[in-house]
Measured scan of single mutants.
Amino acid sequence: ETGKELVLALYDYQEKSPREVTMKKGDILTLLNSTNKDWWKVEVNDRQGFVPAAYVKKL
């Protein structure tokens, strides 16, 4: 879809709370919100949640 910003997972991340999502290094995720410098909201496999901003980079 146009207008979607994507990020690349630089590291594996295992969710530690229900508000977070698990990702694997190399995953491409849809970026939903990056206003917080530490935690970015992403969508992966129809799930939305937060990942550490340092673990992903914008494509």
Rank of each mutant, 00 (worst) to 15 (best):
V56Y: 01
N45E: 11
D27F: 05
E43D: 07
V42D: 00
V51Q: 00
F50M: 09
L32R: 04
R19H: 12
A9L: 02
R47L: 07
P52V: 02
A54M: 14
L10H: 04
K4M: 12
L59F: 09
L29S: 02
D27L: 05
K25G: 06
M23R: 00
W39M: 06
Y55H: 07
N36S: 09
L8I: 15
L32V: 13
F50R: 03
K37F: 08
V21K: 02
I28S: 03
K57A: 13
P52Y: 03
K57E: 13
K58L: 14
K41G: 05
D27R: 02
L31C: 07
S34H: 08
A54Q: 10
D38E: 13
W40F: 07
A9D: 00
N36I: 06
L32E: 02
E1A: 13
E1I: 14
F50Y: 15
L59M: 11
T35E: 15
V7A: 11
Q14K: 13
E15S: 15
L6S: 08
Y13Q: 00
V44G: 12
W40P: 01
T2A: 13
Y55P: 01
F50A: 02
K24T: 10
N36K: 08
A9F: 01
T30C: 09
K58P: 11
L10N: 03
V42N: 00
K24S: 08
M23Q: 02
A54Y: 09
K24A: 09
L8K: 08
N45D: 14
S17M: 08
Y55R: 05
Y13S: 01
D46Y: 08
V51G: 01
N36E: 11
D38W: 14
L31Q: 01
Q14E: 14
K58D: 05
K4H: 13
W40E: 01
Y55L: 12
P18V: 11
K57T: 15
T22Y: 04
V7K: 01
T30M: 12
A54D: 09
L29F: 06
E20N: 05
P52R: 03
E43L: 10
K24G: 05
V56R: 00
Y11S: 07
D12A: 06
N36C: 09
K24W: 10
Y55N: 05
N45K: 12
Y55C: 11
K41L: 15
E1P: 14
A9Q: 01
L6D: 04
M23H: 01
N36P: 05
Y13G: 00
K16D: 06
T35S: 13
G26W: 07
S17K: 07
D38V: 14
S17L: 08
V44P: 00
K24H: 11
S17D: 12
G49S: 02
K24I: 08
V42A: 02
L31F: 03
R47H: 08
Q48K: 12
L31M: 03
Q14Y: 14
L8Q: 13
Q14T: 14
L6P: 04
L6Q: 12
N45P: 10
V7T: 03
K57R: 13
A9P: 01
K57H: 10
N45Y: 12
V51P: 00
N33P: 03
Y11T: 08
L31I: 05
A53H: 03
L8T: 08
L10Y: 03
Q48R: 14
G26N: 07
P18R: 09
E43N: 06
S17P: 05
A53L: 02
G49L: 05
S34D: 15
D27P: 00
V21C: 09
P52Q: 02
R19L: 15
D38T: 14
V21S: 02
E5N: 12
T30P: 15
G49W: 04
S17V: 04
V44M: 15
W39R: 03
D12P: 05
P52C: 03
L8A: 05
W40K: 01
V7I: 09
Y13E: 01
T2H: 14
P18G: 09
S17E: 08
E20A: 05
N36W: 06
K37H: 12
S34C: 10
D12F: 04
L31W: 01
S34W: 08
K57F: 10
N33S: 12
P52S: 01
V42G: 00
T2S: 12
P52W: 03
N36T: 06
K41R: 11
L8W: 07
M23T: 03
K4P: 12
R47T: 08
G49K: 02
L8F: 09
A54N: 13
D38I: 15
V44H: 15
D12V: 02
D46C: 12
L8G: 03
E1M: 11
E43V: 10
L31N: 00
V51D: 02
L10S: 03
P18Y: 09
Y13I: 01
K16C: 10
L59P: 03
F50S: 03
K4C: 12
N36V: 05
D38H: 15
T30L: 13
G3M: 14
W39K: 02
K4T: 11
A53I: 04
V44R: 15
V44S: 13
L8S: 05
V7Q: 01
V51L: 02
Y11H: 10
D27S: 07
V7L: 11
E43F: 07
W40Q: 01
L8M: 13
Q48D: 06
V51K: 00
T22I: 03
V51S: 00
K41V: 14
V42K: 00
M23D: 01
V42M: 02
Q48Y: 07
Q48V: 15
M23N: 00
V42H: 00
L8Y: 11
W40N: 01
G49P: 00
Y13H: 04
V21W: 05
N33W: 07
K58R: 12
L29A: 08
E43S: 10
D38P: 03
K37N: 11
K57S: 11
I28H: 05
R19S: 13
V42Q: 00
A9M: 02
Y11G: 05
I28K: 06
L32K: 05
R47S: 06
K25M: 08
L32G: 01
L59E: 04
A54C: 12
N36F: 08
T2Q: 14
K41H: 12
F50N: 04
V51C: 03
S17G: 13
K37G: 10
G49F: 08
E15K: 14
L6V: 08
K4L: 14
E1R: 02
R19N: 15
N33F: 06
G26F: 05
Y13R: 03
K16P: 04
V42C: 06
A53N: 03
L10E: 04
L10K: 05
W40L: 04
K37R: 12
T22D: 04
K25R: 11
Q14I: 14
V7W: 07
E1Q: 13
G3Q: 14
E1G: 14
L6G: 03
T35R: 09
E20H: 06
S34I: 06
K25P: 03
W40D: 00
L32Q: 03
G26L: 03
R19P: 06
T2L: 14
S34A: 11
Q14W: 11
T2Y: 15
K24C: 09
W39C: 06
G3W: 13
Y11D: 07
L10A: 04
A54L: 11
G49D: 01
R19C: 14
R47Y: 05
E20R: 04
T22N: 07
V44K: 15
A53T: 06
L8V: 15
L29W: 03
G3T: 15
N33R: 06
K24Q: 10
T30G: 08
G3E: 14
V21F: 12
L32N: 02
P18M: 10
P18I: 10
G26A: 04
V7D: 00
D46E: 11
Q14V: 15
E5D: 12
K24E: 06
S34V: 07
K57N: 07
E5K: 09
P52M: 03
Y11N: 09
N36R: 09
K57P: 01
V7Y: 09
T30A: 10
S17R: 08
T2D: 13
N33A: 10
T35N: 14
K25L: 05
K25C: 08
E5Q: 13
N33T: 08
Y13L: 02
N33L: 09
D27C: 07
T22P: 06
S34M: 08
K25Q: 10
W39E: 04
T30D: 05
E5V: 13
G3H: 14
V51N: 00
G49R: 02
K41Y: 15
T2C: 14
T22M: 04
L10I: 11
D46T: 11
L32H: 06
P18L: 09
